[in-house]
């Protein structure tokens, strides 16, 4: 086996200067970096889920569903714009929402793993949306009382959109679960795929702890039980069994992503990176 070439001193120097963010488990040092991190987490969730739902455009099972999913996607992209623009402000290095959306790489994304999961069939998309929008809605309910003015105002605006997402996802879950044999099987498969990503939604790390302490962010653990019971209610109505708890998969909030996110970003970021001067 050939040995690797020796590391050149000039390369070593470049490596020394490399910024810490984007590296696995980069520490969140200061108070404001926790806020930046939180804005990225919420903003990236919305951006990535919006992009995923947008992939249905032209492919949904019916024209009406096509429009419906595109509407959900646009709500989320709108939210991402607000959150990422604010994240850029918070960071103070001249990056706006577009720069953060289109010029970061996989390791710098802070979305949860659930939202980056591939659409699969319509049932899996609905399962994913049920699990995420129920969580997002419960979070936003509490975020409206945030001491952080931007977050409180953002939550007050977004909660109406997400209430609709939550209801729509629940209604479709019931229709698929309590529909035909095939739709029930597909819905159960979709839930099974997504179930292992639930624990990440309730994870609290140091960065989030800091914001909870300041009253800027709600503690998700406080509504985990309510969340589980809300999902159980929908599944009961849908005549579906909740999947057995699987080994949780964590890490999205720290930039450890599944291979799916890279493919999504390649499609999403290609144009602005290849044609930086492109305008509508």
């Amino acid at each position: 086996m050939p040995s690797l070439p020796p590391i050149r001193p000039e390369d070593e120097a470049v490596a020394q200067r490399a910024r810490l963010t984007g590296v696995f488990d980069a520490p969140a040092e200061q108070a404001d970096s926790a806020r930046f991190d939180y804005l990225l987490r919420l903003g990236d969730d919305a951006l990535i889920l919006g992009q995923r739902l947008g992939e249905w455009c032209g492919h949904a099972p019916a024209l009406e569903v096509d429009l419906s999913l595109a509407n959900l996607a646009l709500d989320l992209i709108g939210q991402a714009t607000h959150l990422l623009n604010e994240a850029g402000e918070c960071e103070g290095e001249g990056r706006d929402g577009d720069a953060l959306a289109f010029h970061r790489d996989v390791l710098d994304f802070r979305n949860c793993l659930l939202v980056e999961q591939p659409n699969g069939d319509f049932a899996r998309t609905i399962a994913r949306h049920l699990l995420y929008s129920t969580w997002q809605h419960m979070l936003l309910e509490r975020l409206t009382g945030s001491t952080d003015r931007f977050l409180a105002e953002f939550a007050a605006k977004a909660i109406k959109e997400i209430a609709y997402h939550r209801e729509l996802a629940a209604e479709w879950s019931v229709r698929l679960g309590d529909g035909t044999e095939e739709s029930a099987r597909r819905m159960a498969d979709g839930l099974d795929w997504c179930w292992r990503f639930i624990p990440e939604l309730f994870e609290v790390d140091e960065s989030l702890e800091a914001l909870i302490g300041r009253g800027s962010a709600p503690d998700p653990r406080q509504f985990e039980e309510a969340y589980r019971s809300s999902i159980a209610t929908v599944l009961g109505e849908a005549k579906l069994q909740a999947p057995a708890d699987q080994r949780p998969i964590l890490g999205g909030r720290r930039g450890h992503h599944s291979e799916h996110l890279g493919h999504l970003l390649a499609a999403m970021q290609f144009l602005p990176r290849t044609y930086p001067q492109a305008r509508w």
């Binding site: 019916a62 009406e64 429009l67 479709w172």
Partner: peptide, 15 residues
Amino acid sequence: HAPDAQLALRHARDT
């Protein structure tokens, strides 16, 4: 088009 009344309202809203 919609499978039932409730989803017809949703589709009408979105369309």
